[in-house]
Each structure stands twice: as structure tokens, then as C-alpha cells.
Nucleic acid binder design. Structure first.
Lengths: 216, 216
DNA sequence: CAAATTTTTAACTATGTGGTTAATGACTGC
DNA sequence: GCAGTCATTAACCACATAGTTAAAAATTTG
């Protein structure tokens, strides 16, 4: 019988599985390679996790929980908007720097298995309504320009996540394939992105620029 | 012997291979599935393309060429910066709307097998130097704020590409899983993104805001 | 039309893969 | 210290998969 508390072996397996799955994806990963990486017999993988699919499921959920909800807390806090954007961008890029392969991993597996999305969303309480309401308030109060809050949120996500998803090609094209240069770039990017966003949405006193089509 | 002009069968195979590879990725794809999809015998795949890897390379390069270089032409044109940004964003989002799964495909395969794929890409002449120089000129002339041109380019790419890479989850979270609503959102996004970028980088006459750390 | 060539197929092979099993080693409680 | 349970292993199995082959069908060519 399996114990509730996870054994040391179980942790070692999960660690190895995470590495291999993130590197190779579900289909590319080999149970033997995971076992080798963990330095144990392949049968143990099945002993603890029954099947490749179950093992993957566990790894995926751990990754998802690591990256998504932590950042959601910030969006639902009651900080003022500009501070919140800075806070969000800083934290998100930090978390992703520590787990640079997780966004690509999540996006790919999610595009393969769209069914899982809805259960994940339900499980982690992904709901942008509070943040959307805050953006509306700021628009009405005149501190930011008119826009569709969903567009703004997706701008924020894109600017934070994309550099990690596209790391290989960006690193090759813009940074002579130097990992160190790319890391430096990401550090600078934290400040760069918040400034970029805030400069764009902040309303100038003298003119009222309206964005097209707020929301229906 | 293989003819120079590709036969009808060859086209059918490529079409089927594209579909399966994009859906399942390199490791997930099965030669038998591609053959079934094409309605032909599996041996024909090897007859025309020798191996899975060669077939994949062909498919990948076709996809890459469809999405990347066409848009590079715009960046290397001599339009003024703001017009060029609008032009770029409009064209890119259009192209991606027609090929919504290609970005994810490219990024995924690139992250799985960076070495092999980057040698494939090298032949396609990706070079942002001209556009980078243009951005510098605009900074010097005082029409846009100071910034690292690479950051700006990656902002642009992120804002265009991310909505396609993350479509499943964004659609679920923000658009009740409605494909039509998401399409509408992408249409609006074209205008939204250029405005967002230009509003952020345009320099106001009265103040000179400097971004941190231009380039070394 | 018949010979030569190209295209297509069914059957096959070698290998890699996820998963199983039965035996062994390591603990744990008494 | 020993019975009983849990953890670990090597050897194995069934099956799927990329790739091959040899023969048949279709097409081209003289």
C-alpha cells in the first residue's frame, strides 16, 4: 500500500521525471531515461506511479501550481494599479527565471489536451474578474486610457511569458546564443516591461486618446 | 530517381505530415498515422522522403518559411518607424490568424531539439540589424524614448505571437471557450497592439523620460 | 504493343517501449 | 531475531514503431 507521506524515492522520481518531461515532452520522454536520471530501477516508476500517464499528470500539476496561482494572488490583491502591475511583472519574471521551461511545457501540453484546461481552471481558481473590475475603475476615474481590460491583461502575460517560451530562438538571434547575456537581458526586462506597460496606458492630462472598442 | 518537380503524391504526403506533426509534434507523430491521413501506403513516405526525420525537416522548414521571413521583409523596409510597427503588427497577426498553430509548433520543436533545429533555421537569414539601427536613429532624433531596441522588438513579437501560442488557455479563461469570440478579439487586437506599442515609446515633448540601461 | 521505368503495395524485420512478474533485499514491530 | 510487510531489482513480455524488401501495378518510352 502507498503511504500518504511521500517517500524519498518518490521525490527523487518526481524530480527526474520533471527534468525529462520538461526536456522531451510527454511523447519524447522515456520511462527508462527517467529511471536512469533517478538512478533507480524502471519498475519503481510503476510501483509508485502505476503508469507513464499518471506520472506525467503528477509532474504537470506540480509545475502548473508552481507558476500559476502564486501570481494570481497578486492580481487579486488590493494594491493600486500601477504598483500592482510592477509587482506582478517583477514576481512573474522572477518565478519564470527560476522555472524557465515550465511555461512552454504548460502551453504545449495544454494545447494537446484541451479537456484538462477547464478542470485546471476550476481547481486553481483562475478568475480575472476582480482585476478586470479594477481596470474599469481606473478607466472611469481617468487615470488610464480606455481599453479592453482583457487586451491589457494579455499584453501583460505576453510580455512576461513570451521571452521564456521563445528563449531558444531569441537567444540565437539576439544574443549570439549566450546564456549569460540572455539572463542579463531578462533581469533588465523586469523594469523594462512595467515601464513599457505603464507608459502606454497612463493617461496624459491634456488629451483624451480613446482606444477603439472598449467592450461590448 | 526523384523528379525535381514534386508529384501529386508528394504534396498529399506533405499536407498529411504537416497536419500530424503540428498536432502531435515530432515524437508524438506516427508514420502510420501520416500514411493513413494521406490515404496511402506507409512505404511511400520512405520512398519519397527516406526517413521520418527528413520528412519532418521538410514540413518544419515549410512552416517556418511561411511565418518568419515574410514578416522580416517589413522590418527591413524603409518605412518610418510608427508606420512600420503598424504594418508589422497588422501583417503578422493576419498571417498567424491563417496559420494559428505554426508558432506553437516551431517554438515547441525548437525547445525540444534546439541543436538540430537551429541549424535548419540558420539557412533562412534571420537578421534584425537594420531594424535595430532604425530604432537607434529614432531615439537619437528624439521621436521615441530611449530603450534597448532588442527589448522593443521582443515586446512586438510577444504581443503578436503569444495570443496564438496560448490560445487554448486564454480562450477558456477570457472567452468562455468561444472560438468566435476569440477570433473577434484577435481582429480587434491588431489595432490595439500597434496603439499600445506606439503610445508607450512615443516621446512627449515636455518631459524626457529615460529608460534604464540602453545598450552597452 | 512490349520493354523499361516509376509508383504503389503487403508482408516482414529489428528494435525500442511501457508495463509485468517473481524473486531478493531491507525494514519494522513484537 | 524472526515473521511479515515494504522497497527494489533483473529478467521478461507484448506490442508498437521506423524502416526494408520484393513483388505487383501503373506509367512511360521506343
Amino acid at each position: 500500500m502507498k503511504k500518504v507521506k511521500e517517500s524519498a524515492t518518490e521525490k527523487i522520481i518526481l524530480e527526474a521525471a520533471r527534468k525529462v518531461f520538461i526536456d522531451k515532452g510527454y511523447y519524447g520522454a522515456r520511462m527508462q531515461e527517467i529511471a536512469d536520471e533517478a538512478g533507480i530501477n524502471k519498475a519503481l516508476l510503476h510501483y509508485y506511479f502505476r503508469s507513464k500517464e499518471k506520472l506525467f499528470e503528477t509532474v504537470f500539476l506540480e509545475a502548473f501550481v508552481k507558476v500559476v496561482p502564486s501570481v494570481l494572488v497578486i492580481l487579486n490583491s488590493d494594491e493600486p494599479l500601477f504598483k500592482k502591475i510592477e509587482h506582478f511583472v517583477n514576481n512573474y519574471i522572477d518565478i519564470l527565471t527560476e522555472n524557465p521551461f515550465i511555461p512552454g511545457f504548460i502551453l504545449y501540453e495544454l494545447s494537446q489536451n484541451t479537456k484538462r484546461i477547464s478542470s485546471l481552471i476550476r481547481g486553481t481558481g483562475l478568475n480575472p474578474q476582480f482585476f478586470i473590475a479594477q481596470i474599469y475603475k481606473e478607466i472611469e476615474s481617468g487615470s488610464i486610457k480606455n481599453c479592453d481590460p482583457r487586451q491589457l491583461i494579455i499584453h501583460m502575460l505576453a510580455l512576461c511569458i513570451f521571452p521564456f517560451v521563445a528563449q531558444p530562438i531569441l537567444q540565437a538571434v539576439f544574443f549570439k546564443n549566450s546564456v549569460e547575456e540572455y539572463r542579463q537581458f531578462l533581469r533588465e526586462r523586469k523594469a523594462e516591461v512595467s515601464k513599457f506597460i505603464i507608459a502606454s496606458i497612463r493617461k496624459q492630462q491634456e488629451e483624451e486618446i480613446t482606444f477603439s472598442n472598449p467592450i461590448q
